[in-house]
Nucleic acid binder design. Sequence first.
RNA 1: GCGGAUUUAGCUCAGUUGGUUAGAGCGCUGGUUUGUGGUACCAGAUGUCGUGAGUUCGAGUCUCAUAAUCCGCCCCA
Length: 433
Amino acid sequence: MTARTLQGFMELLPQEQIVFDHMKSVIAHTYEMFGFAPLDTPVLELADVLLSKSGGETEKQIYEFKKGDTDLAMRFDLTVPLAKYVALYNNDLTFPFKRYQIGKVYRGERPQKGRFREFYQCDIDIIDRDELNIVYDAEVLAVIYTVFNKLNLPKFKIYINNRKLLGGFLQSLDIADKTVEVLRLVDKIKKIPEEAFLGELSDLGLAEDKKQSLLKFIKINGLNDEIIAKLEELNIDNDSFVTGLAELKTVITQAQNLGLPAQNIQIDLSITRGLDYYTGTVYETFFDEYPQFGSVCSGGRYDNLSSVFMDKKFPGVGISIGLTRLFDQLRANNLLQFKELTPSKALIVPQDESLIDAAVKLAGKLRNADIAVDVMYRQCKFKKKMEYANKIGVPYLVIIGEEEAKSGLFACKDMITGEQKALNLDELIETLK
RNA sequence: GCGGAUUUAGCUCAGUUGGUUAGAGCGCUGGUUUGUGGUACCAGAUGUCGUGAGUUCGAGUCUCAUAAUCCGCCCCA
């Protein structure tokens, strides 16, 4: 039997896992800073529940199987489980309901660069009954900004748009019936040449003048305020457009009030998102110097979370960070530093068998003082012990030898500077704190 | 679902028009006098050359089949 891991499933070495987990905890902590409460739902659900909402693409990619007579499926994202959860517990939840969920999701698609069959999504959503204030859309922007800022990653930009704008614009052109197809095409504009884009619009049956006005519309650019001014100048008399513009304006204004730097937030009228359940604000996040990573955090506003499960209306806004992809791309581009192999602050090294007792006692005391320590019990040449300490990247070495046993002091060596001091217990705890 | 490529040591790869004991770097193990490392130097181990068949006196190298992996498209994080 040969040991191997399924394709599309990521496994990490300890020093990588430490960095991965660190990123995960920064994300979780940031989410909590904005008042989101944790939620965990099962990886497996009834197939009917998971497939209730979705179209053909999900059905093709979802892992589905039978156990006995029950049709089961593995969750494809965290949004459908959230919808189920809200439908199930809405009488016990307090709205606006803010939850975050960090968990693995499963998609049985062809693995490729940055595409996994099992990957972490880190979601936040704010759900309210009937109506959800638009300022939450700006808060979501602040969450995205704060997370990426704290993760200490390359320069990034959050691109924002409002689907009502393009929807209203298409209505004003009298081609609203083509909205879904046009949105999908607009979403691809950055990937395909302009002629191909126009060609595909022709295939949809759009007249020349309409194609040109659409192209002109999505190419409107400039600073956020300039774009808003240009949109206002268009003077389009359409309810959806007017609402969308007002919402976008509010989000931008509130983002400024929240203190988000202008250079990290950019209105882009060609951002539409492929998923058709978004109805208002949409977000995508890219690294300025690594556009090939794709969007590392996306989301948007939707009118109704749980329509398939219940009659009541629950509008919401949320985003998802694809942590597995993000980590994988950063690692592939050498943008992460892997140093420690251990969470320990110090490695205690008894010089020989007779000093193990002293080492065990010291380990106990240090751990009681809330200091993570490890002990090298394996007896070998001192040089080997040093090598081990080096490899696991532990910051301090505490040596227990005959001299130390006699004096009652501990030799504490800083592995980076090489500096070594004889310390008593209190001084040692102070140093390692 | 459609298309393209790759497969040689633990990892990354080299291997000339088929020719005898298949190589490098990194990593690994040991050593440079046995209480002081990360650098340097020395020595060493490791391969059914993805699998199966064929052509040939002879195949890592050519042909066919098959599998695995990777990369695009679609869709998405």
